[in-house]
Amino acid sequence: MRVLVLGHGKTGKLVAEVAAERGHSVHVLDAKENANASALTPPFVAGFDVVIDFTTPEAAVQNMRAVLATGAKMVVGTTGWYDKLPDMRGLAERRQAGLLYGTNFSVGVQAMLQMAKKMGELLKGAGYEFSIEETHHETKLDSPSGTAITLAKTVQAVTGLAEIPIQAHRVGDAAGLHVLEAKSSADRLVLIHEAHSRRGFAEGAVRAAEWISTHSGCYDFQDVCTKV
C-alpha cells in the first residue's frame, strides 16, 4: 500500500515508521511542504492508496477538502475540527471517497470507552457524580482533548447527565492520561487509561488506513476498531 503521511511531528513520524514496518511504501509531507494544502493536487494524491493526517485542526480541514475532493481515502487522527464534520462527511459521500476519523486510535482507549459506557449504565440513578481528568504533552493544541470529550459524551449518553466536568493538564511530553471517576457518599470508582508512548496511536492509525483503503463513506474509529 502507498501511504502519504501529512504532518512530521512526533506522532506523524511514528505513524510513518509503523507503516514502513508493516511493509507499506511511505511518503511524508511536513507543514512547510504542504502549506494551505498546496501540495495535494489531484495528480499527486492519485499516487497514494491512503492519506493519514496528524497535523493541526486548521490544516486538517484544508487537507480533507483537497484529498476527499479527489475521491481518495483518508484517515484523520487530528482532533479539534469536528464542527466541520458534517461538511467533510458530505464531501466524502458526494465524491465516493473514504474518511475515517477518531479522537483516539489507541485500541486501549476504545476499550476504555466501552467500559465507561457500561460503568455509566450500571451507576445511572445511584447517586454518583462523574468527573474526568486528562493530561497530555504541552504542545497539544486542543484542551480538553478530543478523547476526554468523547469519554464525557459516552457517559452522558447513558446517564442523562447534562454535564461532566473535565480537568485538562498540559505537561512536558506526556503521551496521554485519561481518568474517569465516579464518586458517591459511599464509595469511589476510577477507570484509567495511561499511554506509555504514542506507538499505540500510530499502530491504530496505520491499521485504520489499511481498512479504509478498501471502503468508501465516513466512519468513526469507534465504530470500526474491532474490524481493523
Rank of each mutant, 00 (worst) to 15 (best):
T154W: 05
S143E: 13
G146H: 08
A162K: 13
T159E: 07
P165W: 09
V158A: 07
K140S: 09
G160S: 08
D142N: 13
E134N: 14
E138M: 13
I132G: 01
S143I: 08
I149G: 00
T150H: 10
I149Y: 05
A152Y: 01
T159A: 06
E134H: 15
A162S: 14
P144Q: 10
L161D: 01
T154G: 05
K140D: 10
E163Q: 10
A162M: 06
A152V: 00
T154Y: 08
V158W: 05
P165T: 13
L141G: 00
H136R: 05
H136T: 11
L151I: 04
L141N: 05
A148V: 09
T139F: 12
L141Q: 15
T139E: 12
F130A: 02
T139Y: 13
S145K: 13
L161Q: 06
D142C: 14
E133K: 13
P165F: 11
E138H: 12
E133W: 03
K140H: 15
A152P: 00
H137E: 14
P165E: 09
E133V: 15
P144N: 11
T159M: 07
P165N: 09
D142H: 04
S143P: 07
T139W: 11
A148K: 11
E133R: 15
G146L: 11
A152C: 01
T135H: 05
T150S: 13
E133D: 09
E163C: 02
V155K: 01
S131K: 11
S143L: 14
T154M: 13
S131F: 01
I149P: 00
A152E: 03
D142A: 12
L161P: 04
I132A: 02
E163D: 13
H136V: 09
E133Y: 10
L141H: 08
T139N: 09
L161M: 12
L151W: 03
G160Y: 01
H136G: 00
L161S: 03
K153G: 00
L161G: 00
T147Y: 14
G146P: 12
A152Q: 04
A162H: 08
E134M: 10
A148L: 09
A152I: 03
T159P: 06
S131W: 01
K140Y: 13
A162Q: 08
F130N: 04
V158Y: 03
G146K: 06
V155M: 04
T154I: 04
T150M: 12
P144F: 09
T159S: 05
L151T: 03
T147I: 10
E133N: 06
A157W: 10
E133C: 07
T150I: 07
K140M: 13
Q156D: 06
L161E: 07
E163I: 02
A157K: 11
Q156F: 02
T139C: 07
T159K: 07
I164W: 07
H137T: 10
